[in-house]
Design a protein around this nucleic acid. Structure first.
Lengths: 178, 178
DNA sequence: TGATGCATGTAATCCGTTACATGATTCA
DNA sequence: TGAATCATGTAACGGATTACATGCATCA
């Protein structure tokens, strides 16, 4: 799955500009398992348009560049369907946090606690994002429900685990202080 | 965290060759949250050696290239400690599977089930990998225990969720067949 | 008045993967 | 006999990020 397919996917829900696509990736259900920057989105959209997979409509705006609104074509929808009808490559999960935890013996106790708390904040942030997506549009399509549920399940498991470890750390620290 | 730091990390546990480092990344606790290929490991090791962060010892072998065994130096250990003593960037989780699930309405039912089953196989594979790491070396350092536990918690949550969804799908399919 | 949001785009750069090159041994 | 394991390395290529370029409106 590349950025082009991603844009196609988002446009299959609703027409949007490059800027709005970026926002959707950051704030929508995609946020916790997909990334994309302007530097990849804008060229992708231009290319998609050249290939006839999306159409382009320029909305004039005062004191701002024209808003270029892209919409999926039939060819685009077909292409998207074909793109996802393959057994996908394995999930790629990269965690600097876990790498750090693996060598936690090299870390000061206070810093360790801080790092875990930061990870907790991140996970809870993602969880909140999913909850918000659900509340904004309570009647979600099947796919969105599925993905939101998966995200919640996994994220929640991480939160619970980290909270338990943090509690242990605090208990140990308390004992040491006595 | 780049490949160089990763190599340093693995060497902090035990001296190893490039080949063995790759194996450790694939089969060890790292496997589910880190990737690396020979094309990045070998150059990294060469560079690390040039910088004095690791030492190099060539083990002669019959009918095979010399095995280059690398070991962490004191400077290397210091560098590693410094490298992980920063608040790391957020986890990056990329999932083609979830992307696919988001647009599951475009997918045939049978294919959908297949995709979920494949994901289950992958997750269970990672789980098995962690269990094996634990059984091989039951008395793990604190960091390894932490990471293994986190992985298990998260992976297990994913498995449970997918199994529940799969059961639902099968029930629906059964009803439709009646 | 200084950050944030809106809005688009290009170019340099990075970091890594994939493919290529080589070749003996062992296991099924 | 063909695949997998052991063993190291280079070069081409890809795909995306980061930084740069521009500029008005709004909110604190």
């Amino acid at each position: 799955m590349n950025i082009r397919t991603l844009c196609l996917g988002i446009l299959s829900f609703q027409e949007a500009s490059g800027y709005e696509i970026k926002k959707e990736i950051e704030e929508g259900l995609f946020s916790h398992f997909i990334d994309a920057s302007f530097g990849s989105i804008y060229p992708a959209l231009t290319q998609l348009n050249a290939e006839g997979l999306v159409t382009l409509r320029a909305e004039e705006q005062t004191s701002r560049p024209d808003k270029k609104v892209y919409a999926l074509t039939e060819a685009g929808r077909t292409f998207l369907a074909k793109s996802i009808a393959i057994i996908p490559s394995r999930d790629k999960y990269k965690s600097e946090f876990l790498f750090q935890m693996l060598f936690q013996d090299l870390l000061p106790q206070d810093f360790l606690r801080l790092a875990i708390e930061k990870q907790l904040t991140d996970l809870n942030g993602d969880l909140k994002c999913i909850a918000e997506c659900r509340s904004v549009q309570p009647q979600q399509p099947k796919g969105s429900e599925f993905v939101a549920g998966y995200g919640e399940a996994v994220l929640l498991a991480g939160v619970k685990y980290l909270e338990a470890r943090l509690a242990e750390l605090n208990k140990t620290a308390l004992k040491a202080a006595q």
